[in-house]
Design a protein around this nucleic acid. Structure first.
Lengths: 246, 246
DNA sequence: TCAAGCGATAATGTATACACATGGGGGCTG
DNA sequence: CAGCCCCCATGTGTATACATTATCGCTTGA
């Protein structure tokens, strides 16, 4: 397994792309990526000194970053004992889906109540069309699966932003730090499943366009809840492939 | 206005009660209390050096505490510009109620699905009876209002804990850092309002006892949403008494 | 007079040294 | 030999000095 995210940054790196404003923020990103990639087993303690050596910064930004990640729910903190990678039970993962379902449903309702600016409307239509195109193929290769996962993520993020409610967006983001509980993980690429879900997207968009908050909310809630059902089926069928991985 | 929460602690204070494990945690409590008490106007910047002088600790625990409070949503952070007391628009306050409504409804549903241990059942029945008793009086004095507010808080907290879902509890807690959006603020003590809400509590408890998740969820959602309606009415009737106060 | 550039000042970001808490291992004792 | 206690190693908590960045007033030129 590569640990690119945790390699020390080249001091004289002149990367033109916008880098984070502070080292703390950069460290947050790198540790989050590493944990989501499964570089640390759940329960592993993250020692400040070791991390600071690995990342080439002092303990101060490390501590700050760990605190951030703990508040996102990704790490666990015990006073005087430091931080460790949070261990999620199956029950917690399933609960996270329930929470996400009601939150995303509320976001869809807000979007329907508040209406879509032209730019967002266009963006959603574009991503829906892209999804149509990908799913037109009989079978999906690895590349198409990745592409559809991106489409899925973009659609949901568009709804979150259309809700125009920062607190709601923050809370949904927290749900995504729970393993398996993210748009980034399309649980099933079975023909029926993925096409049905894409059809859900169309209907949700229709409801939002029609300013039908009630229908938008119901559809979104069922949409997310159905993924939970798939997940539960997958988990009971065979033991989870590996903790903390996608 | 007293600023007791922000006074420097007596070094040789030998308070027998359990004090926080670290200074950071103690500072978190003190700043949170001060902000909730309205000692800082929304938008006020919290300078690290000044706080550290006022509280008699170094900048390190202050920074840590400010970061915690920002992640709770009580403060706002801008890189290289520090922390300031978050300003909540009326829209955000109303939205917080909507969010709280779906979250508490989910908690009620979880409680109904998961059942109540005897101890919790007894605790809820006790607090419901206490509410009955307080509301038996024709009119409520200040003391009774305070007492009923405590009853209200206890009831809701019992439901949260009965949900047995840490993430949900955390999220509901975040909603409470929004001014006006807390059980601690009983918006209206009008006869009808408070009695109707107390009756809601009874029904919600009945639904949970009867293991009827659907009804528990619906009742709780309407219960919280109705407070939102009262709040909106109060806000539109007269300008909010004062930002950030109860 | 106004705008733009520049420099002083104050605040935050980071590094580092020291204080303190925790947990485990070795030695002492019964 | 078992059990307890003390000591020390490890690692977090805190203080403080230094680096870097924002802000604001001033100067200077058009």
């Amino acid at each position: 397994m590569t640990d690119a995210a945790l390699r020390q940054t080249d001091p004289d790196e002149a990367s033109p792309e916008a880098r984070p404003a502070t080292r703390t923020l950069s460290v947050v990103d790198r540790i989050r990526t590493a944990v989501l990639a499964g570089e640390f087993e759940p329960g592993t303690r993250l020692h400040e000194v070791r991390l600071s050596e690995r990342l080439g910064v002092s303990r101060t930004p490390i501590r700050s970053a760990l605190q951030s990640l703990a508040s996102e729910g990704m790490l666990e903190y015990t006073p005087n004992r430091g931080y460790s990678v949070r261990r999620f039970s199956t029950a917690e993962i399933v609960d996270a889906y329930e929470i996400r379902a009601v939150m995303e449903a509320l976001a869809a309702r807000f979007a329907a109540e508040r209406g879509l600016p032209d730019a967002e409307r266009a963006a959603i239509e574009r991503v829906l069309a892209e999804g149509d195109e990908i799913l037109a193929a009989r079978d999906l290769g690895e590349e198409e699966k990745l592409a559809y996962t991106a489409v899925n993520t973009t659609f949901h993020e568009a709804i979150h932003s259309a809700a125009r409610c920062r607190m709601l967006g923050d809370m949904i983001r927290v749900c995504h730090s729970v393993p398996h509980s993210s748009h980034r993980n399309v649980i099933s690429f079975e023909h029926m499943d993925v096409r049905r879900r894409h059809d859900d997207h169309h209907r949700i968009y229709d409801a939002i366009l029609a300013c039908d908050p009630y229908r938008a909310e119901l559809l979104m809630r069922e949409h997310v809840a159905s993924v939970k059902t798939s997940l539960v089926r997958a988990l009971s069928g065979r033991p989870m492939a590996r903790r903390g991985r996608s």
